[in-house]
Amino acid sequence: MSTQEIKKKYPKEILQAKDLKGLDLVWKKYLGRKGEINKILKNLKKLSGKERINLGKEVNQLKKEIAEKIEKKKRILEKKIFKVAVKKEQVDVTAPGKKFPQGYLHPLTQIIREVEEIFQSLGFLVAEGPEIETEYYNFDALNVPENHPARDLWDTFWLRGSQKIPNSKFKTRLLLRTHTTSVDIRYMEKNNPPLRIIVPGRIFRHEATDASHDIQFYQLDGLMVDKDISVANFKAIIEIFFQKFFKRPIKMRLRPSFFPFTEPSFEVDIDCLVCQGKGCSICSGTGWIEVIGAGMVHPAIFRAAGLNPKNWQGFAFGMGIDRLAMMKYKINDIRLFYGGDLRFLNQF
């Protein structure tokens, strides 16, 4: 075929190709090894210089054109095929997704992190201390003398075989700490004010268990000491904390209380989350929930830590982390936290 004939014929043949197989035959006929284009190119060398150059250009141009058109037609045909094929395929979007093995952080870890973050934003450092404490740090240094009814505020687990060392200044009888307040003393012994710390940690109480009491739980103690930290400052810090923690405006009230390590001492109530202060079973009808025991650091505590009470003043507070978690997640039994039941834990 001459180039003229090819030019005339091939577009019709491409148009007539009904499927990829037909199109492939067209391609072979013109562009294949034994195709029409190659036939012309083979005969090129028989031609003289100028004629050869002109025909060569024309044939190459033509080859490109054919290839492009075939390619175009091919895409059209493929699209048709996919359209048909896609119709045959389908996923069931309502079928469950593949289970990806996922772990969960314990709810108390999540609450502790949240609490730590808020206090860190208020300039508090996280401090820690031992769970097995000495009688000295847990009680005596905190102004809780032996054989005093104040000790009854904390029912204590004692360790067997840790006898008192007679005549020693520090009582070394060992116990499971009943509060993380003991870390306040340990920290102040090593660090001079001004200071602000929080001490989250596991504590223990020797008491009968029920839905709201357990023999172990988590406490967060806080301490802020400077030249003139006041009750008004305490109110401000704690109010900010609760508003950030519960992500809502809160009402708060201070009531008088007694702790041997603070003077004045108070309890802090916030308005009940459930009834917004109207009174319900959660707050035993009062509209208030007790959340914090607190007060201004007693001079005896500064002295025990080797500081001069004339130079420093500040506040200390303690709150139950489990209680916060129970309030936030509306959990009604504290023992669920320590039961290791994944049906419970994997919901957080």
Binding site: M224, K227, I229, N233, K235, A236, I237, E239, L254, F266
Partner: peptide, 11 residues
């Protein structure tokens, strides 16, 4: 104590 107004520490 309700008559003591909250006040952020000036430190």
């Amino acid at each position: 104590y309700e008559n003591i107004l909250a006040c952020s520490p000036l430190v």
